[in-house]
Design a protein around this nucleic acid. Structure first.
Lengths: 229, 229
DNA sequence: CGCGGCTTTGATGTTCATCAAGTAAAGTGG
DNA sequence: CCACTTTACTTGATGAACATCAAAGCCGCG
């Protein structure tokens, strides 16, 4: 019989991909699971590390990126809880294709990959649910990458501000979780021009800036800029 | 008992994701399957169409793209047989997120989506195999998009030429399956500059051009340009 | 032919990266 | 807690990269 004290049973993250598991399966899940804490700046895993676990973000914020030969980072995604850290690569590759770093203090839930694979094989509904979730995450990354690629400088900056305000913080006021340089790495532009564009938005009364704190003043205008560029 | 005349049994595409199916399952697969032919330029499905089938390309070549509000295309992928047409969206969405058009005469194998979902639920190894394949395709698209984004004009043109010569045609000489404008839409550059860059490659003796026919003369140089830019 | 679409090339202007120099902020050691 | 160092941020000036516009050549097709 399942252990009623298993933390996973009541975890609000069961909705992610584990809603179809029965009590016994949840109990097993619990035993193959560990929780890992990372401080802001902590490296969760590096490009090339072997994949042994299915990981997802329980709290905090992380950036997914790859490093170019010349040493600088190309940021692929900044994701909040409810979105997996391990992308789909966990099934297609033995090694991580991208590095992941905590950009706020974060807690990662790590489940032994062998157990997940076993569940996929034994439990059809789980397989379907997991597939759906993983697909959604891939879709989202591809879509965002295309959105960024199709915009010019100011369109990209507007887009990313809207992303933070809506998808990440759900608030008109928020503290930028990343440096100006990291925004630049995210939207593939130079740091100087990101800063310049933010300053122009400030001068035009579209946003307010206090160091890392951003307030979106005129979201309609920002949307217009984002869709034009 | 399975029908021994089922075409699917010996189809070389069983390796894609159906290698684990037994005889009976293959026979069922056969009955839920239809083959669709498209002429060059034929629309396979459009962004927004409902997803009823799991489709893959049996022969030919297709482009996957989305259309911007302003009417022009953003090409996401050009894929050859052995790669699915339906991306992962089939599990995460009810409608296609992208349009797909044949750029050479093509044959699509279309399998009723309900049947695939049923297989996933009933057959664990199939689920795992399918998941792996779908993940690989997503990975590839993401990787290519990032590769393109991180390069400048000439680096992008070099990259895409290498992609055609290696991944699509596996030959130093090939007929470009797309117009110059489509290349431009693929790498997010202007048509004029794509043409200009091709001309420069020609002048520098890196490639030869006869209309749509391209011959890669100096592949090392092309690789160098691709990795620098 | 002659029309329309694709291609090519040149000229021009815009967008953007780079460089440089300075300021603010955030660690660091005494 | 303060001087010192380092890192992040900001702004302007310059040039390179790239888009856009325009005009002409080419090619397939009715």
């Amino acid at each position: 019989m399942a252990n009623d004290n298993c933390e996973c049973a009541d975890c609000r993250f069961r909705d992610i991909a584990f809603s179809t598991l029965n009590q016994n399966e949840v109990a097993s899940l619990c035993s193959f699971r560990t929780e890992l804490s990372f401080n802001k700046g902590g490296l969760i895993h590096k490009e090339g590390d072997p994949i042994h676990a299915f990981k997802y973000l329980k709290s905090g914020l992380v950036k997914v990126y790859r490093e170019s030969d010349s040493g600088d980072e190309q940021i692929i995604a900044i994701t909040r809880p409810f979105e997996f850290v391990s992308n789909m690569s966990i099934f297609s590759e033995e090694k991580y294709k991208y590095s992941v770093t905590a950009i706020e203090d974060s807690i990662i839930c790590s489940i032994k990959l062998e157990f997940i694979k076993q569940l996929v094989q034994e439990h059809g509904n789980f397989a379907l649910e997991l597939m759906t979730k993983i697909s959604q995450i891939s879709d989202k990354i591809i879509l965002q990458t295309l959105d960024i690629r199709s915009r010019n400088l100011i369109g990209r900056v507007a887009y990313i501000l809207l992303y933070f305000t809506r998808d990440i913080y759900n608030s008109q006021v928020f503290d930028l979780p990343v440096s100006r340089k990291e925004i630049a790495d995210y939207i593939s532009m130079s740091t100087a021009n990101v800063i310049r564009t933010l300053s122009e938005f400030r001068k035009d009364g579209i946003i307010k800036l206090y160091g890392k704190t951003v307030e979106i003043v005129d979201i309609e205008k920002l949307e217009m800029i984002s869709s034009r560029g």
